[in-house]
Simulated scan of single mutants.
Amino acid sequence: MPKIVDHDQYRRELLRQCFDLFAEKGYAALTMRQIAQGLGVSTGTLYHYFPSKEALFEQLVREMSLQDIKNAIAVMSEKEATLERAEVALQFVAEHEDYFIKQNLIWVEFYQHQQRENKSPCQVFHDVWRESEPQIAELLGIEDKPLLEFLGCVVDGILLHRMYEPEGFSFQDHARLLLEMLRLYLEKQQASESKVVDC
Rank of each mutant, 00 (worst) to 15 (best):
M1F: 11
P2L: 12
D8C: 01
R16L: 14
R16F: 06
D20Q: 13
G26R: 04
G26D: 08
Y27E: 10
A29D: 13
T31V: 07
M32N: 11
Q34G: 05
G38K: 04
T43N: 11
Y47R: 04
H48M: 12
Y49Q: 07
F50L: 09
E54A: 13
R62F: 09
M64L: 15
S65M: 12
D68H: 14
K70C: 10
M76N: 09
S77Y: 08
E78P: 00
K79I: 00
T82G: 03
E84C: 04
R85D: 00
A86S: 15
A89S: 13
L90M: 13
Q91T: 09
F92G: 05
F92P: 01
E95V: 00
H96G: 09
E97F: 02
F110V: 00
Y111S: 09
Q112P: 00
Q114D: 01
Q114F: 10
Q115W: 00
E117Y: 00
P121M: 10
V128H: 01
R130F: 09
Q135F: 06
I136G: 04
I136H: 02
I136W: 09
G141Q: 06
D144E: 15
K145H: 10
L147T: 12
L147H: 04
F150A: 15
C153Y: 06
C153A: 15
V154Q: 08
V155A: 12
I158H: 03
L159W: 04
Y164V: 03
P166I: 11
E167L: 12
Q172C: 04
L179P: 01
Y185D: 07
A191D: 11
D198T: 06
C199Y: 10
